[in-house]
Every structure is written in structure tokens, then in C-alpha cells.
């Protein structure tokens, strides 16, 4: 396991000269199209001047009109077409406008794109990236707010990756495009406007960060100059922001010292960095925005249980309900800083 250490100040969540996640992803797509003529983009409404529902593809069709293909509203066919292009040595990147629509591409991912390489005895490669915005918090209601990535975790041959503000989302996307196998790239909608975090010199609230792995790193954050911490918070994507705020609150108001383990690759995944943190804290709280039952946290807890480690573990996730449109209802359904703090306190008492 490769480990790099650096320090980050969490106030950089708010005022920052750093590029946003959106800019980072957009730049990565520019660069991919510029440097590799096998790269094609396919998606709905991705042409300029509109540039995609969340503007991730803005400016690309103007520069690369031959390789940025706006499509009919045909999610299954778009991913199927891209899969065929990938089999014939192109490198397509598909945008699915809302993550909720991944149910429409399930057959193409599960029975086609991810099966070809193994089923054809490793004689083919399918360098396909499917990017899609997931997540709530925008009041989009039951069919435009979900985090459905859990349905695709554990699909053989599929890598599921989720950027966050700590790593470099653009680099993560570039790495996905460079893969020879299918990648489902999950972008939380609320991340788009967030600036990337910036390493800085520190004070008490500084976290020392270990980076495990290069391509899709797992980050382990520990409060600097602290000998022991007593709770591990594991998460991915946008929820990292909630987890950081909860960790600060727990530190300032309750003197509970947290470590944070932030995953970039959800499936398949390496449990080692988390196991390592848990050996120190013996308490784990997983935080995800997908529904609780049979979700990401459930598999994490199962792996840890199988490892034989003695630890107390809980999960924070969305309620097993559709996501409501009304703000108070949506807030009640999705994870929040408050829910994370409450769960952490309950766990800490154990």
C-alpha cells in the first residue's frame, strides 16, 4: 500500500481560489478529447451552448464537434452504442443526465459491457466510462435525487468510482478514461459547485492525511498531533463534507476524536486502510446517501466482521423511502451532520 501524507485545513471548504469539482471534471474531459482521438462523449443535451444539464460538458462540442455526440433520450442504447464502440477500440465516455436513470442502463452494464471481457475469455477490452450525477439536497424529488450506485456495487467487472473534494476529481476521471474496463463514475450533484480542498499550514483543526493507493485513492484523515482517536467515520463522495463538519463538532463540543476514511473507489474495494484505522479506534460509523438496507455500509461492516476485528459499528444512510420533494421531508430522509453526530454519540457511549 502506497501512503502519502499531507495536511489540509478544513475552512477551505468555503472560500477558496481552487477550481470547483465541475471545472476539474470539465478540464479533464477537454484534456482527454485533446490528447486521445479515440475518446468520444455521448449524452443527452450535451451540446453547446447548453453544455449538459449540469454543464460538465460545456465547451466541448464547440471544440470537438465530431466527437461530442448529443443523443436521443435513449439511455440503454447510448450505453450499448458506447459499449460497441469500446469493443472496437474507441474510448467512449457517456453522460447519463441523472443518476436515477441508471436503472435504464442496467442491462447494458450488467449483461453486456461488464461481461464481455471475462465471458470472451479476456480476448476483448471494454474501455467505457459512464458518468452520472447522483444525490439529493436540491429538491428534485423522488426520481431525480437518488443515490442508486449501491445497485451496481459488486457487479463483476464493473469499477464504481466516486470523486470528492479532497482528491482531484479530474484526475480521477482521467484515470477512469484510461482504464481498459468499464467504470461507473458517480458524481454527487452538490459537489459540482464545491472548490477542491487545498493543503495548508495548520492549527488544531488540521487533519493529517494519508493517501492509500494512486489511481483511485483511499484517504485516511487523522487530527494532527493527536495520539489516539476513538471513532472512525467512513464515507465517500459529497458526504465527506457532512462527515468533516460532524467530526469538527464532535471534536469541539464533545472532545471526541475522529478519524475519517474517505473512499474514491466503492467497488471492488480494499478494506485494509479502514481496518487499519479501526484497529486504533475500535468504533466505526459509515455514512452514505443511498438507502440503508443492503447498501454500501452493509458490505463494509460485513467485511470487517469477517476480518475478525472486535469493534462497535453503526451506519448512517438515507431512510428506505423515496426521496421527497419538500425540503423538510427531504432533510428528514437524507443523512445530515446532526444525524451523523447523534449516531457517533450513541456509538461513542458503547
Amino acid at each position: 500500500m502506497k501512503v502519502k501524507s499531507f495536511v489540509i485545513h478544513l475552512s477551505s471548504f468555503i472560500y477558496s481560489p481552487m477550481p470547483t469539482v465541475l471545472e476539474s471534471l470539465n478540464q479533464a474531459l477537454h484534456h482527454a478529447l485533446l490528447t486521445d482521438e479515440r475518446v468520444y462523449l455521448l449524452g443527452e443535451d450535451i451540446l453547446d451552448p447548453y453544455g449538459g444539464a449540469f454543464k460538465v460538458t460545456r465547451g466541448l462540442s464547440a471544440k470537438f464537434p465530431e466527437r461530442v455526440l448529443t443523443t436521443p433520450i435513449s439511455e440503454a442504447a447510448i450505453v450499448g452504442v458506447a459499449s460497441g464502440m469500446a469493443l472496437r477500440s474507441l474510448r467512449p465516455v457517456v453522460e447519463i443526465m441523472f443518476g436515477d436513470f441508471v436503472t435504464l442502463i442496467a442491462d447494458q452494464l450488467v449483461n453486456h459491457a461488464t461481461k464481455f471481457r471475462w465471458m470472451y475469455n479476456d480476448m476483448v477490452r471494454v474501455p467505457l466510462v459512464v458518468r452520472t450525477p447522483m444525490g439529493g439536497g436540491r429538491g428534485y424529488g423522488p426520481t431525480h435525487s437518488q443515490s442508486l450506485e449501491k445497485m451496481f456495487l459488486g457487479v463483476p467487472g464493473l469499477r464504481v468510482v466516486a470523486p470528492n473534494t479532497l482528491g482531484d476529481p479530474g484526475q480521477l476521471l482521467a484515470n477512469a478514461i484510461a482504464e481498459d474496463d468499464p467504470v461507473l463514475f458517480i458524481e454527487h450533484k452538490l459537489l459540482y459547485t464545491r472548490p477542491l480542498l487545498q493543503a495548508s499550514q495548520g492549527d488544531l483543526t488540521d487533519f493529517e492525511i494519508q493517501q492509500c493507493g494512486e489511481t483511485y485513492p483511499t484517504y485516511v484523515l487523522r487530527i494532527s498531533n493527536l495520539e489516539s482517536s476513538n471513532l472512525t467515520l467512513a464515507t465517500y463522495g459529497y458526504n465527506f463534507e457532512l462527515v468533516c463538519q460532524a467530526a469538527l463538532e464532535l471534536l469541539m463540543e464533545r472532545e471526541i476524536f475522529c478519524e475519517i476514511v474517505l473512499f474514491s473507489q466503492l467497488s471492488p474495494f480494499d478494506i485494509a486502510p479502514l481496518l487499519d484505522s479501526l484497529r486504533r479506534t475500535r468504533r466505526l460509523l459509515t455514512v452514505e446517501e443511498g438507502g440503508l438496507t443492503l447498501g454500501w455500509g452493509a458490505e463494509i461492516l460485513a467485511r470487517l466482521a469477517e476480518s475478525g476485528i472486535q469493534a462497535n459499528m453503526r451506519r448512517v444512510a438515507a431512510l428506505d423511502l423515496p426521496i421527497a420533494n419538500s425540503r423538510p421531508l427531504e432533510d428528514a430522509i437524507l443523512p445530515s451532520v446532526e444525524k451523523i453526530v447523534d449516531a457517533a454519540l450513541a456509538l461513542h457511549g458503547t
Binding site: V81, G84, R88, S89, Q108
Partner: peptide, 16 residues
């Protein structure tokens, strides 16, 4: 499910 895949293959042959 094979039909969009074949369609994508045709696209690949066309652009190549």
C-alpha cells in the same frame, strides 16, 4: 441488448 452494441460497432467502423 446486443442491438445497440452492434450499432456502436457500426459507428466505430464508420469513424475509423
Amino acid at each position: 441488448g446486443i442491438l445497440p452494441v452492434a450499432t456502436g460497432m457500426a459507428l466505430a467502423e464508420k469513424v475509423k
